[in-house]
Design a protein around this nucleic acid. Structure first.
Length: 414
RNA sequence: GGCGGAGUUCCCGAGCGGUCAAAGGGGCCAGACUGUAAAUCUGGUGGCUAUGCCUUCACAGGUUCGAAUCCUGUUUCCGCCA
């Protein structure tokens, strides 16, 4: 696995560039990329492509797959993927793109469990058997305080504060803790340790990537390039895809669940999704986008679903979606709920209480609101409930519907 | 350490000692429309055994018939000074 590959193993530089630059927002410094690739091809030495993550308990979603897919593409071109598990940086918490400090610090055990879980997930995107994996505790745990001071002496506070996320927090009167300032420094040092040629990440990583170059030069190493992907926007089409914003599509989700979410994205983000999440040639994408948006969206969903499920899962999901959402059929997986026997009186339950008990509304007040707005339905013929105190006759398997999408089926209390 | 400013409901943000569950915007929810979405229009958005009751305006006390609004202490943030 450490065999030096013959020069011919690498495709021509132009071909490599075509693959590498798809969906990439920025390469810095751009002019070095072709040079690096050419040199690698001449010498037969694969480039070392770094990608780092913090094992903070991530459900990998499509936003994460953007740089991971890029890493995969480098692997397919014959380069060496180097994955950094930031078990030490996780103790700090990445301030990038955050408007507040991470709330809790993780224990070593949690971090290790998260790392294992994470690797299992990313194995769907990159080829782990050809990936070099490091935990940055390998080097950080051995550093002395003197080492750390030396490292810190390379960075000025003014530089740190130019980072967009710090600047924003500073401006909005949010705290910035000292240890957070070390985060980019640590991340940059990882690049020194593993001698990276290219680092992948989002555009918000620019500062860290450049700092890594400084530190590498300082150690007489070849300097890395930053290959930065745009931030994938979430289902709302505005903000970055993220778990906390609830606007993400997880790669472990069922085909139908993914399908539903894909169909919800605004039309405007389709070009970005096609470019970043699929390998469909861009001229074909243009044709798709020129056609009906619904068909284009279905095609997009099908492609992505097939990547994380079986090759036919995408088509099946389209059919299910058409039946359920488009034609209005009931979903296949309606949740079965049981209510407390105490709320049943003469075989009926007050409507508002029923919806709360069925878990369709978080509070009675919320259920009352829903009903007063005409968004509560019951029975297989989905009769509208007109009043919060309407007595609903209870039968086994009674169908309840809240709003457009939420359903529940009743189990009689024993 | 000193002085000054600030901390409001999911977020931003307005709030005269009573008429404040608290303006406005965002987000979200529901209804109409639809191609799935967006846009647009309408309504809603603390809780409850519900036309009344209870709990909220950093935290803990206090003044008052009455406090988000006044006072004291604590705490966090920001600014200036040291």
């Amino acid at each position: 696995m450490s065999d030096v590959q013959p020069a011919l193993a690498f495709p021509p530089v132009e071909d490599q560039l075509k693959v590498i630059l798809r969906g990439v927002e920025k390469v810095v410094p751009e002019e070095e990329l072709a040079r690096k690739l050419a040199k690698s091809r001449e010498t037969g030495r694969p480039l070392r492509i770094k990608y780092g993550i913090d094992p903070t308990g991530i459900d990998v979603h499509l936003g994460h797959t953007v740089p991971l897919r890029k890493l995969r593409q480098f692997q397919e071109l014959g380069h060496q993927a180097v994955l950094i598990i930031g078990n030490f940086t996780a103790m700090v918490g990445d301030p990038s793109g955050r408007d507040q400090a991470r709330a809790k610090r993780l224990s070593a055990e949690e971090v290790e469990a998260n790392a294992t879980d994470y690797l299992k997930q990313v194995g769907k995107v990159i080829d782990l058997s050809k990936t070099e994996i490091h935990r940055n505790g390998e080097w950080f745990s051995k550093m002395t305080f003197a080492d750390i001071l030396t490292l810190c002496s390379k960075v000025t506070v003014a530089q740190l504060l130019t980072r967009d996320d710090f600047a924003k927090r500073y401006a909005s009167q949010s705290p910035i803790f000292l240890h957070e300032c070390l985060y980019p420094v640590m991340q940059a040092w990882d690049s020194v340790e593993i001698k990276s040629d290219i680092e992948l990440g989002g555009t918000e990583q620019l500062y860290s990537f450049m700092l890594a170059r400084d530190l590498q030069r300082d150690q007489q190493l070849e300097q890395q390039l930053g290959v930065m992907s745009p931030i994938l926007v979430g289902l709302d089409g505005k903000r970055r895809m993220g778990k906390s914003l609830g606007n993400y599509i997880g790669i472990a989700e069922s085909p139908l669940a993914m399908m539903k979410k894909f169909m919800q994205i605004p039309d405007e983000v389709m070009p970005m999704y096609f470019e970043l999440l699929t390998n469909i040639p861009l001229d074909e994408v243009q044709q798709l986008l020129a056609g009906h948006p619904k068909l284009a969206k279905q095609r997009l969903a099908r492609e992505v679903i097939a990547q994380y499920h079986t090759s036919t899962a995408g088509d099946e999901a389209i059919q299910q979606w058409e039946a359920e959402v488009s034609a209005g059929a009931l979903p296949a997986d309606i949740e079965q709920v049981t209510i407390e026997a105490s709320v049943v009186s003469n075989g009926t339950v007050t409507a508002a209480i029923l919806f709360k008990q069925a878990g369709l509304c978080p509070t009675t007040s919320d259920a009352r609101r829903l009903i007063s707005q005409g968004g509560a339905y019951f029975g297989d013929d989905l009769q509208v409930i007109s009043s919060h105190d309407q007595a609903i006759p209870i039968t086994n398997g009674l169908l309840l519907k809240a709003g457009k999408k939420r359903y529940a089926r009743l189990n009689l209390p024993s």
